[in-house]
């Protein structure tokens, strides 16, 4: 039970962290180009992340082989180079209150891709989720 409460606490911290990150980047984007802002924020993020992983999981680094880096590169390209840059362009143009929920639809696309690429079975619940998300997107694009 204690573990579950710890897990829930960390989940809340994660949600607050991402919410805060979107707002902080919105403030920074008032005076900066999104391309430059993305590069600078990725620089800081990678330093912080390497510090955490080196201090907590140093032994895991020794297990890596050269071909693993191709996977990391692909993930970096889609997740951070394209993903964060496009997210920042979105935040700059429509604001954090509209861009964040739209950006949050990524699990929908992950689910669709999993059906296509990983041959996962589509379910009625998934269909329901897609319909609700689509209505949410329409409402956000209609709000002035």
């Amino acid at each position: 039970m204690g573990n579950i409460i710890t897990g829930i606490l960390f989940a809340v911290i994660a949600a607050i962290g991402w919410g805060a990150s979107a707002v902080l980047s919105r403030i920074a984007l008032e005076k900066t180009d999104p391309r430059l802002a993305t590069i600078v924020s990725l620089f800081f993020s990678s330093i912080i992340m390497f510090s955490i992983s080196l201090s907590t999981q140093f032994n895991e680094f020794e297990k890596l082989i050269v071909s693993d880096f191709l996977w990391f590169f692909s993930a970096g390209l889609t997740s951070f180079a394209a993903g964060r840059l496009l997210n920042y362009v979105g935040i700059k143009n429509i604001g954090v209150s509209k861009a964040s929920p739209l950006f949050g639809t990524s699990p929908l696309f992950a689910a669709l891709l999993a059906i296509i690429i990983l041959n996962e079975n589509p379910t009625i619940m998934l269909g329901m989720g897609i319909v609700i998300v689509t209505f949410g997107i329409i409402l956000i694009t209609k709000s002035k």
Binding site: D68, W71, F72, S74, A75, T78, S79, A82, G83, R84, L85, L86, N87, V89, G90, I91, K92, N93, I94, G95, K98, A99, L102, F103, G104, T105, S106, P107, L108, F109, A110, A111, L112, L113, A114, I117, L118, I137, T141
Partner: peptide
């Protein structure tokens, strides 16, 4: 531009989630 970028970012993260699952 804003709406297209935000949804494209979501698609991009969706692709990376598949990669993350494998990694």
């Amino acid at each position: 531009i804003g709406y297209t970028s935000s949804l494209s970012a979501a698609i991009s993260y969706g692709i990376s989630a598949i990669l993350a699952k494998i990694i």
